[in-house]
Simulated scan of single mutants.
Amino acid sequence: MKIERKKVSMQVVDHLKQMIKDKKLKPGDKLPSENQLTEMFGVSRTPVREALSVLEASGLIMSRQGGGSVVQTASIDHFLEETQFEFVDSQDILNLLETRIIVETGGARMAAERRTSEDLKIIKKKLEAVRKAYEHNEIGHQEDIAFHTAITEATHNPILLRTMKNMSDLYEKAVKFSLMKNMGILGKRTKVLNEHERLFNALELGDSAEAEKAMYEHLNNAKKKFEQEIGRLP
């Protein structure tokens, strides 16, 4: 029998999902605290936080103000899916990534040429949110999308912005899938953050060629990673 190796955080995810399916945790129930979960599973706090972030992104739990998380109201969709990402059509994701490479590389060049000082402040603020999500071991898909959207807005091309918004649903699923696969892998998460920072630096300098190159390499790396996940590359 082949032994499957899984990240610690994903093992915690599996255990908590099973507890929900077995009704040991019911809709509306408050989850044990992070400290209690670390003791329950014999792991450190980092994988527990990563697991809670994944479960929240998949819609199984919801964070409450004042701390703690509760199980969401039962939904057949939640229990049929391992996570919503696993049922996304892989060819659709690849098509989207190819489209993003075509659209956003040109968009990055244009943004470097057209961005205003106010645009740059907004992009920097979005980058700081990406960095904060990284530091807190969160998936950070919404922050990632906001960063890329701010760059598109800096092109001051309404048709380009509308094009990005028209594929927003699949766009969000693709970004979630990609970033979720990095959870618990510090090297990959650091690499993605560095790619965002390189892109911002090029925009700040108004270097259109470097901005285009940085965006291409960033998105092409995401495409390669996805192809590896679905077994199209060795």
Score class of each variant (00 low, 15 high):
residue 7 K to H: 13
residue 8 V to P: 09
residue 11 Q to W: 01
residue 16 L to F: 06
residue 18 Q to F: 05
residue 23 K to L: 10
residue 23 K to Q: 15
residue 26 K to Q: 09
residue 26 K to F: 01
residue 28 G to D: 11
residue 30 K to G: 08
residue 34 E to D: 10
residue 37 L to F: 12
residue 41 F to E: 02
residue 47 P to A: 02
residue 50 E to I: 13
residue 51 A to Q: 08
residue 52 L to F: 08
residue 56 E to D: 08
residue 59 G to N: 06
residue 60 L to K: 05
residue 60 L to S: 00
residue 60 L to Y: 08
residue 67 G to R: 03
residue 68 G to L: 01
residue 69 S to E: 01
residue 69 S to M: 04
residue 70 V to E: 11
residue 78 H to M: 07
residue 80 L to R: 13
residue 81 E to W: 01
residue 84 Q to I: 12
residue 89 D to N: 15
residue 90 S to F: 08
residue 90 S to H: 14
residue 96 L to A: 05
residue 97 L to Y: 07
residue 102 I to F: 10
residue 106 G to M: 03
residue 110 M to F: 01
residue 111 A to E: 01
residue 112 A to Q: 11
residue 113 E to N: 11
residue 114 R to L: 07
residue 115 R to N: 15
residue 115 R to D: 06
residue 115 R to P: 10
residue 116 T to M: 02
residue 117 S to N: 10
residue 119 D to N: 14
residue 124 K to A: 08
residue 126 K to R: 15
residue 127 L to F: 05
residue 128 E to G: 02
residue 129 A to V: 11
residue 132 K to C: 00
residue 133 A to M: 06
residue 135 E to I: 04
residue 136 H to W: 04
residue 138 E to K: 14
residue 138 E to T: 10
residue 138 E to Y: 07
residue 138 E to D: 12
residue 138 E to M: 12
residue 141 H to E: 14
residue 143 E to N: 10
residue 145 I to H: 07
residue 150 A to Q: 02
residue 151 I to E: 12
residue 153 E to C: 02
residue 154 A to N: 08
residue 156 H to C: 01
residue 157 N to Y: 05
residue 158 P to S: 11
residue 162 R to L: 13
residue 163 T to A: 14
residue 167 M to C: 04
residue 167 M to I: 14
residue 168 S to Y: 08
residue 170 L to T: 06
residue 172 E to R: 15
residue 174 A to C: 15
residue 174 A to W: 10
residue 175 V to R: 05
residue 176 K to C: 07
residue 176 K to V: 11
residue 177 F to A: 09
residue 180 M to H: 02
residue 185 I to S: 02
residue 186 L to I: 13
residue 187 G to R: 10
residue 189 R to H: 03
residue 189 R to D: 03
residue 190 T to Y: 05
residue 195 E to R: 14
residue 196 H to K: 12
residue 201 N to E: 13
residue 201 N to L: 10
residue 203 L to N: 04
residue 203 L to M: 09
residue 205 L to H: 06
residue 207 D to G: 05
residue 209 A to S: 14
residue 209 A to K: 15
residue 213 K to N: 09
residue 215 M to W: 03
residue 217 E to Y: 04
residue 219 L to R: 02
residue 221 N to R: 10
residue 223 K to V: 00
residue 224 K to Q: 11
residue 233 L to C: 00
residue 233 L to S: 05
